[in-house]
Design a protein around this nucleic acid. Structure first.
Length: 647
RNA sequence: GCCUCCUUAGCUCAGUUGGCCAGAGCAGCGCACUUGUAAUGCGCGGGUCGUUGGUUCGAAUCCGACAGGAGGCUCCA
């Protein structure tokens, strides 16, 4: 069998190998160093074991720790390693599923009568590393369904039996490393020796197959790395994430609070948090006016029929906050879960001509949605929140231009708020399932093409996801990475063919016939609550200067300089610079410390020298003494910094 | 909603196997000090130990219910 096959590498180069060559052989052929890092391989687009033979011409990509897929392979293999360690420590445990996840892996375990508690984590980690050092290979084996069932019957693992039951004979594979064999489609890393560091992160309950009626298993979350150093860095990052938790910083900086009496999931904004919100709103309003939006206002409740028409009643009605009834007329109103139906009615308030399109209605609309109590989380998951909502009603031929304009607006917002690292996702319809979608084929085609063209023209880093579109239209989502490389979904732009249909929206065209407009929903922030939470976690509470609730604090050295301090305060107030005079009877060191802890960007120290020279001694948060400046000098410096971000 | 864990002063936390009037630091209030780049000193007030039943001679501590919070509840072998 010395037949040759052709292997094409990602750089386009081609090499000849004997049939049955493995990705690992090829890696070794390229360089030993590469071979030491190969975790798995992508063969003609399919991720496979690096040790599995290739039997026909193929495109080959070697996957290492630097690829997401390589990491996933390693983590999935780590789940097996953890299972092996568990089986060694707790004979007779049964296993559910154990996949790799975005950051690590988990395995669902049924400990039966045995106890597992968090004190045993270290022991488990040590066992994993002990087994890893044995460098056991992950061996793949195809098994018949009968044999597979027999194996787990023998083992008494009803979960695996249930899984196998749903699989087709002839497609079933087992993987074995060391003393542990698991049902698994793979792929896996070559051997356990690649795993050099392991940490079990948390223990949680999880229903078998996510079904409340089924047994609850113990889910162990873990993560592994090829180097101890990387694990340490990861743990430091988790620590840092805890410090940046918006719930903690929100309390420390007096931004928001919750009250049992008001109700869970219903945030109360404290004065400083309210300034933050207001600044964000004004900032966006100003940008939207420039971009041709009209501000509208709609009430917090709406007649039930409104939402029946829009289709939201079906989605939010039954399992949601129940309708409010008027006592005399017995009319029903719903707390509004969405602003769009109201905006549709505004559009319908009079006949529209093609000449006035696009119409762009913007509103900071507060909406209420019932979230299950277990889903609530700080400001990111709440029951009442304010969307920076807007709806653009346009002609089908205007979709592209409107999309481009919205993208510009979102990019401007991201820049002003310091989100430099982001990607976008275009969601298109599933071509195999056209019946699922509402709207004309030609409109979809035009809109989908337009979105992709604009995204390219704007140079966005874009992933295209086919089949991810909503039934009512394609969309573009923005995902930002925060300072800790965590990904958050923020802005979204969605085309909607459904609501114009449901509300029978129309405009008169140049042909004097009635046409249906296209609606575009968009929200750069998503919701103010969620956005503030992300902003807090991204900046650790060190907000951009223009947003900071307190931009400066004037710190008099002693009581003697209070008058001068107040004079400075009034002058800065006129220049729209927010802050306060720290008139407390404290030493300057204490005042500085408190201002630093509150993350106030500028501290202006005034004593005898400043008073005489009519200057301020400037200290910048986190950067120490900046020397003294004249009053106008400081104002110019300050405004220069703000303009830099907002231009 | 369900599972696990948590709830002691405004905040962060002590409180040993259930046993004298429940403690500390910070914050607050009062007094003294009149201060030069990350905490001046002294004093004072503040808690029905989440709520509510129970066990006990005796409960912050043990058990139950409820409320609130945290983590999790397919990212599919």
């Amino acid at each position: 069998m010395s037949e040759k096959i052709k292997i094409t590498l990602p750089d386009g180069s081609e090499r000849q190998y004997d049939r049955g060559v493995t990705a690992m052989d090829i890696a070794k052929d390229i360089s030993e160093g590469l071979a030491r890092n190969v975790l798995s391989a992508k063969v003609n687009g399919e991720v496979r074991d690096a040790l599995r033979g290739i039997d026909k011409d193929a495109r080959l990509e070697l996957l290492t720790w630097n690829n997401e897929e390589g990491k996933a392979t390693m983590w999935h293999s780590s789940a097996h390693l953890m299972a092996e360690a568990l089986e060694a420590l707790y004979p007779g445990v049964k296993f559910g599923i154990g996949p790799a996840i975005e950051s690590g892996f988990y395995y669902d375990v049924d400990f039966g009568d045995q106890q597992f508690d968090s004190e045993n984590l270290k022991q488990l980690e040590d066992k994993m590393l002990e087994l890893a050092r044995q460098k056991n290979e992950y061996l793949r084996k195809e098994v018949s369904k009968t044999d597979a069932l027999a194996y787990f019957q023998e083992k008494g693992d009803e979960y695996k039996l249930e899984l196998i039951d749903e699989l087709e004979d002839g497609t079933i594979t087992f993987y074995t490393q060391g003393n542990f064999t698991d049902l698994c489609k793979g792929p896996h890393i070559p051997n356990t020796g690649f795993i050099k560091a392991a940490k079990i992160l948390s223990v949680a309950g999880a229903y078998w197959r996510g079904d409340e009626s089924k047994k609850q298993l113990t889910r162990l979350y873990g993560i592994t790395f090829p180097k101890q150093k990387e694990l340490n860095e990861h743990l430091e990052m988790l620590e840092e994430a805890k410090k940046r938790d918006h719930r903690k910083i929100g309390q420390e900086l007096d931004l928001f609070t919750f009250s049992q009496k008001v109700g869970k999931g219903l945030p109360l904004w404290l004065p400083k948090g309210a300034i933050l919100r207001e600044r964000l709103e004004n900032f966006l309003k100003k940008a939207q006016v420039k971009a041709g939006y009209d501000q509208v206002v709609s009430p917090h409740i709406g007649g039930k029929e409104l939402y029946v028409t829009s289709g939201h009643y079906a989605k939010y009605g039954e399992d949601s906050f129940q309708p409010i009834r008027t006592p005399a007329e017995d009319e029903e109103f719903l707390l509004k879960p969405m602003n769009c139906p109201h905006h549709c009615e505004i559009y319908k308030s009079r006949p529209r001509s093609y000449k006035e399109l696009p119409i762009r209605y913007a509103e900071f609309g507060t909406v209420y949605r019932y979230e299950q109590s277990g889903e609530l989380h700080g400001l990111t998951r709440v029951r009442g929140f304010t969307q920076d909502d807007a709806h653009i009603f346009c002609r089908p031929d205007q979709v592209k231009e409107e999309f481009a304009k919205v993208i510009d607006l979102i990019l401007y917002v991201f820049k002003a708020l310091g989100f430099a690292d982001f990607t976008t996702q275009v969601s298109l319809r599933d071509p195999d399932n056209p019946g699922k979608y509402i709207g004309k084929d030609e409109d979809w085609e035009r809109a989908e093409a337009a979105i992709q063209e604009v995204a390219n023209e704007k140079g966005l880093k874009t992933v295209v996801e086919t089949g991810e579109a909503a039934f009512y239209g394609p969309k573009l989502d923005f995902m930002v990475k925060d300072a800790l490389k965590r990904s958050w979904q923020l802005g979204t732009i969605q085309v909607d063919y459904s609501l114009p249909e449901r509300f029978e929206l129309e405009y008169t065209g140049s042909d004097n016939l009635k046409h249906r407009p296209v609606m575009i929903h968009r929200a750069p922030f998503g919701s103010l609550e969620r956005f503030v939470a992300i902003l807090i976690e991204n900046t650790a509470g060190n907000f951009p200067l223009w947003l900071a609730p307190e931009q400066m604090s004037i710190l008099p050295i002693s009581e003697k300089y209070h008058d001068y301090a107040k004079e400075v305060f009034l002058l800065l107030q006129q220049k729209d610079i927010r802050g306060q005079v720290d008139e407390r009877d404290e030493k300057i060191g204490k005042k500085i410390r408190d201002a630093e802890v509150k993350k106030i960007p500028f501290m202006l120290i005034v004593g005898e020298k400043e008073c005489e020279e009519r200057t301020v001694s400037v200290r910048a948060h986190g950067h120490g003494d900046q020397g003294s400046m004249s009053l106008n000098g400081f104002v110019d410096h300050f405004q220069g910094l703000v303009d830099e971000l907002l231009k």
